[in-house]
Structure formats: structure tokens, C-alpha cells
């Protein structure tokens, strides 16, 4: 259940080619809590999108669960994301017309592995484990920023993903909420999930089990605790 990058390179084509990620090798094992930090524009988000099969590398490859993903068509990558990955972004991206509970159920309904009642029960349990069980019926615009981000995390966990990828998930939160979210990630990693969080907050990065630093698209440091 490892997520592995080999010689990963992403170059934006155009008159002036722009290198987003250059020759990255990473192997991330289950249970690891990886914080990716670095200055703004260093390629952290780009790396995360590549690892999460949202973007396609120019060179190199990603191995998901040990299997290469380069040959996968777009729909196959979408299916793999649905079953194996959870995403949290800086912006919550909750569907505004649906309640917190329905937003969390969304990936489960798409995957269709659980019966509707079981999916609803799981969504409720996820919201409760994130201390927002009492907000289940509310729509996103009735929730606070911290609550929305927790709903987004619950949605990312809906299909019990092996890999949880978060891009600056605390960027819009106050420090107390930010610390709480990192606490949640730490717990999730301890449960055996692979958690990769992009952050430019060095203090929070220090709480991760492994810290990857980037600069100009290159991984310049990779250290475990």
C-alpha cells in the first residue's frame, strides 16, 4: 500500500517551458504522516496533484499500491481516485445545495459499495468522529470555516481511502482550528492511512512524522523524525 514517485517531472508546455516538479523520487509507506513544505511557488501543490493522479507527469511515473498508473485512461484514474484517494483543499469545495451529511455521502453514492442506509450511517459516524455530528443537517453556508473544513475531511474519508492528500487545508483557518486539523491527520495516519499534507506553516510541519521540503520544483530535504 505504498505511494511511490519515480523520476517525477512535470513541465508546463508553452513558448517558455515552466518546470513545476523536477525529478522527484519519493516512496511513502502506510501510516506515514508527510508534511510537504517550502516557499510559495516551489511546486508543492503540483507534486500533490501528481501524486493524487489529478495531473499527468511529463516524465517519470507514480506507482499506486505498487502498480504503475501511467497507462491509465482518464476514467480509470478517476475510478482509482474515487476508491483509493481522499482530497482536502484549502477551499472546502462543498456542494452548496446539499447538507453536510449529503456532502459526505457524495463519494460513497458515486462508488456504490455501501447500501444507502449504511452509507448514511458511515457519513454520520465520520462527522461525529470529527466532532461535528450535530451539524450534519446544515448546509455549508450555515457552518463556520473550521466546521466546513472538517466536513471536507469527512468527505475525503468517505470511501475509506488509503491515501489522504491535503493541500494547505489549514490555510483559511485560525491557529486553534489549524492545530486541531493537524491533530486529526496525525490520528488518521496512526490508524494506518498514508497522509500527505502540503503546508507552508513550519510549526505545523514539525508535528508530522516525515518532512519533505521543496524549492524550485526539487525536493531539497526529506527527513523523518
Amino acid at each position: 500500500m505504498t505511494l511511490e514517485a519515480r523520476g517525477l517531472t512535470r513541465i508546463l508546455p508553452g513558448p517558455v517551458q515552466q518546470v513545476l516538479v523536477r525529478d522527484v523520487d519519493l516512496s511513502i509507506a502506510p501510516g506515514e504522516f508527510v508534511a510537504v513544505s517550502g516557499p510559495s511557488g516551489s511546486g508543492k501543490s503540483s507534486l500533490l496533484y501528481l501524486l493524487g493522479l489529478l495531473d499527468v507527469p511529463t516524465a517519470g511515473e507514480i506507482l499506486v499500491d505498487g502498480a504503475p498508473s501511467a497507462a491509465l485512461a482518464e476514467d480509470a484514474r478517476a475510478s482509482l481516485r474515487l476508491a483509493r484517494f481522499g482530497f482536502v483543499f484549502q477551499f472546502h469545495f462543498l456542494l452548496p445545495e446539499f447538507s453536510a451529511l449529503e456532502n459526505v455521502r457524495l463519494p460513497m453514492r458515486r462508488l456504490g459499495a455501501l447500501a444507502p442506509e449504511a452509507a448514511a450511517a458511515r457519513a454520520r459516524a465520520l462527522l461525529e468522529s470529527l466532532d461535528i455530528g450535530d451539524q450534519a443537517g446544515k448546509r455549508p453556508d450555515q457552518l463556520s470555516g473550521g466546521q466546513r473544513q472538517r466536513v471536507a475531511i469527512a468527505r475525503a474519508l468517505a470511501n475509506d481511502p488509503a491515501y489522504l492528500l491535503a493541500d494547505e487545508p489549514t490555510g483559511a483557518l485560525d491557529s486553534a482550528n489549524a492545530a486541531a486539523v493537524f491533530g486529526i491527520f496525525r490520528t488518521l495516519a496512526r490508524e494506518g492511512r498514508t497522509v500527505i499534507v502540503v503546508t507552508h506553516d513550519e510549526g505545523l510541519a514539525q508535528t508530522a512524522s516525515r518532512r519533505v521540503r521543496m524549492k524550485d520544483g526539487l525536493v531539497v530535504a526529506d527527513e523523518g523524525t
Binding site: G52, L54, E74, D75, A78, S79, L80, R81, L82, A83, F85, F87, F93, L95, L106, P107, R110, L111, R155
Partner: peptide, 9 residues
């Protein structure tokens, strides 16, 4: 977001 979650085109 739906596409990133894994909805097909």
C-alpha cells in the same frame, strides 16, 4: 470537486 473526487466526465 466532483471530478477530483472521481466522477467520470
Amino acid at each position: 470537486i466532483m471530478k477530483s473526487i472521481g466522477f467520470s466526465g
